[in-house]
Design a protein around this nucleic acid. Sequence first.
DNA 1: GTCTATAATCGGATAGAC
DNA 2: GTCTATCCGATTATAGAC
Lengths: 199, 199
Amino acid sequence: MSTPDRLIEATRELLWERGYVGTSPKAIQQHAGVGQGSMYHHFPGKSGLALAAIRRTADELRAAADRSLDGPGTAYERIAAYLLREREVLRGCPVGRLTMDPDVMASDELRAPVEETIGRLRSRLTEIVREGVDRGEFDRAVVPGEVASTIVATVQGGYVLARASGSTAAFDAGVRGLLSLLAPRGAGRCAPADATPSV
Amino acid sequence: MSTPDRLIEATRELLWERGYVGTSPKAIQQHAGVGQGSMYHHFPGKSGLALAAIRRTADELRAAADRSLDGPGTAYERIAAYLLREREVLRGCPVGRLTMDPDVMASDELRAPVEETIGRLRSRLTEIVREGVDRGEFDRAVVPGEVASTIVATVQGGYVLARASGSTAAFDAGVRGLLSLLAPRGAGRCAPADATPSV
DNA sequence: GTCTATAATCGGATAGAC
DNA sequence: GTCTATCCGATTATAGAC
């Protein structure tokens, strides 16, 4: 791995673990096994390096989400795949945690990839929920943008519950609860009634 | 307000705004309008002061939640009251955000009030959801602990969405989505069927 | 109780040798 | 490209005067 790559990867790890304010250039250098001068040769400073790291993390996260959401299956199945995909739950969301970092939010450049990643995720889920409503999978009263927001929020909040309790079980519980509320006519939830839209 | 109180209040503000790692003793002193020596006279140091601040914030949060959850009304109505209660959404959750703070989580003392606050909230909501299931407000397939976790997660995640997008609308959307999924037989969602439990 | 002085370490970076 | 030296302010205190 090239020196710039090692620096970016080290920064990604530290941003995930300690956030931007909690990450020092020295810690990055040590993690990367790279000297002081070397870091400042390849990057303009802490924030420039953080920008590269955040962009890479955001790209990976989006790709991972798309792998679940663009898969085959019903809307419910794709949403379930997204919710149940493997995660390092106790480490938190490497993008979502940045929203609580004051220095990240104070910088237009650093905030942009965070904003875009979460925004796109909500948009994509909105489409899928709308599809589910159109196909009669979900109740006609469901507002796609709202339920999409609930889905993303449950994941982001699930990380908080897991870290607060020190156990991934809390994350899983939240996800299962949401899936049970979303489930199309599962286990006696709703009478089948008129599954296909009448108009 | 007494000097210790001013220090605690200043610390609460800064912990909320910048987290533990992002908050320096000097910043606390300036915010409180208190000198260096004065702070170290009343408190053993940054972490001791943070402990007092976190405990006070946790107590207030619990009290605020209880005001909604212990009110009158059906289970759904009390949950809705909790979800819709006034919040400074764009500032994030003053307790939840601490779960992403590495130094807080690394300290047993500092982590304890965070863990307890979120744990109690989940427990209390679990009782209420169970009540709702028993009374036939919610589907019998609902697992109280799971849906309670979903509720707390939606709130915690709602803060993330709001901060990521720079707008409280994202929080509100997530909450409305959840309420629509929880709604007992609302607006054509489920056929009324057998509302009162048959046994 | 509050203030000022002092201090060791860290944070974030620049300069220039190699 | 990488390394070491250097810099200046911030961090997190402690000591002792008032």
